[in-house]
Amino acid sequence: MKNFLKIFSVFIISIGLSFNVNAAEKAEYLKTDWSFKGLFGKFDRGALQRGYQVYTEVCSSCHSMKYLSYRNLSEKGGPEFSEDQAKAIAASFEVKDGPNSDGEMFTRPGKLSDKFVMPYENVKAAQAANGGAYPPDMSVLVKARGGGVDYIYSLLQGYEDPPLGETLDDGVYYNKYMYGNKIRMANPLSDGLIEYVDGTEASIEQMSKDVTTFLMWTAEPHLEARHQMGFKAIIYLIILTALVYFSMKRVWSRVETKV
């Protein structure tokens, strides 16, 4: 048992150390409460709906969301728009379809089963329209960045003037939290930029938090189901472990004390 504890603590320490890996290279991220963190974490529906609005009105002109379908907007665990609302959202976009009986491609209003329409045809078109920089797809962006939600949240609020003496090229901006501090995206948010449907004040901080919450959902749409199942699974395992433990003791009682 002593040996086990020794090894286990070494193991835990090494894991702990390995996480401090990149911390020294970046500024400390801004902290906020995320409703979806923790064992019983859930998404705030209001935040998700507001976040969707931010995404649509601010980000979607450059950033695609290609792995999401419009029906996801009304599915359980997400913003939970009504099915009619989701249908209306889908129908507000023109989707490419075809070929028709003449062999031509055509556009039609979106349906629930369609994937989110992309702002550009392909990656090259996106780069060409943005000075060579590709605005990344946002479907799993939160998982694709080491800092996760804290990083995205901070970055959106991290635009400032470059330090004295540092000049930036055209189309390059200074951001406190961007890896390398240089970012090709101009500050996308400003206070009051959009008018939230639910009347919430659209400060930069509010929009940052809402859109980041939304992005956490787009990356992990089954997060709530995962947390709920996890809780049940671990309680179940603990109960079964206890039962098996006592069964084991009962079985082994037939053998004289082990050496």
């Binding site: 064992l39 995962r226 947390h227 199942m229 996890g230 809780f231 699974a233 671990i234 395992l237 603990i238 079964l240 472990t241 098996v244």
Partner: peptide, 13 residues
Amino acid sequence: LMFMIVFAFFVFY
């Protein structure tokens, strides 16, 4: 079972 508890923690959380 003990191992599975650790496993479950990673998978679900």
